[in-house]
Every structure is written in structure tokens, then in C-alpha cells.
Amino acid sequence: DHWHVHIDGERIRLDGASEEFIRTLEELIRRGTDARELKEIIKEYLR
């Protein structure tokens, strides 16, 4: 599956992301997590 998110107007691909990770991201977004912080979390995950 190819997922991607838009954060700060930037399109970030989440290739190979699990549904669990996507749900976690959605939860963080709902909580109002800062965009820079979200991008860091995604970069760490994709390593």
C-alpha cells in the first residue's frame, strides 16, 4: 500500500507504513502535535 500525508504543505510518502502507524499518526494529528515534530516521527519510522 502507498500512503502519504500532507504536513505543512509538504507531501510525505509513507511507503510500507503499517495501518497501526497510520492510526498513531492520525491520533497525534488529532492531539495537535506540531508539524515539525510529526515530520521527525515519520523520518524516524521510515529509517
Score class of each variant (00 low, 15 high):
D1H: 11
D1L: 12
W3G: 08
H4Q: 05
H4R: 01
V5L: 06
V5A: 09
V5N: 02
H6R: 06
H6N: 12
I7T: 01
I7N: 01
I7S: 02
D8N: 11
G9Q: 05
G9Y: 03
E10K: 07
R11Q: 15
I12W: 05
I12K: 01
I12S: 01
I12D: 00
R13N: 15
R13P: 13
R13I: 15
R13K: 11
L14Y: 02
L14K: 01
G16W: 09
G16V: 07
G16P: 04
A17G: 05
A17M: 09
A17H: 04
A17T: 06
S18M: 05
E19P: 14
E19I: 12
E19H: 11
E19M: 14
E20Q: 11
E20V: 05
E20N: 10
F21E: 01
I22P: 00
I22R: 13
I22F: 08
R23H: 09
R23N: 09
R23M: 13
T24V: 13
T24R: 14
E26L: 10
E26Y: 06
E26C: 04
E27T: 09
E27P: 00
E27C: 04
E27I: 08
E27Q: 09
L28R: 04
I29K: 03
I29E: 02
I29P: 00
I29H: 02
I29T: 03
I29D: 00
I29W: 03
R30E: 08
R30T: 10
G32T: 03
T33M: 10
T33Q: 04
A35S: 15
A35Q: 07
A35Y: 07
A35D: 06
R36M: 13
E37H: 11
E37K: 14
L38T: 01
K39F: 11
K39V: 09
K39T: 07
E40Q: 12
E40V: 08
I41L: 14
I41N: 01
I41D: 00
I42R: 00
I42P: 00
I42W: 03
I42M: 03
I42Y: 03
I42E: 00
K43E: 15
K43M: 13
K43C: 10
K43W: 12
K43G: 13
K43N: 14
E44N: 08
Y45L: 10
Y45A: 13
L46D: 06
R47K: 15
R47A: 15
R47S: 15
R47N: 14
R47H: 14
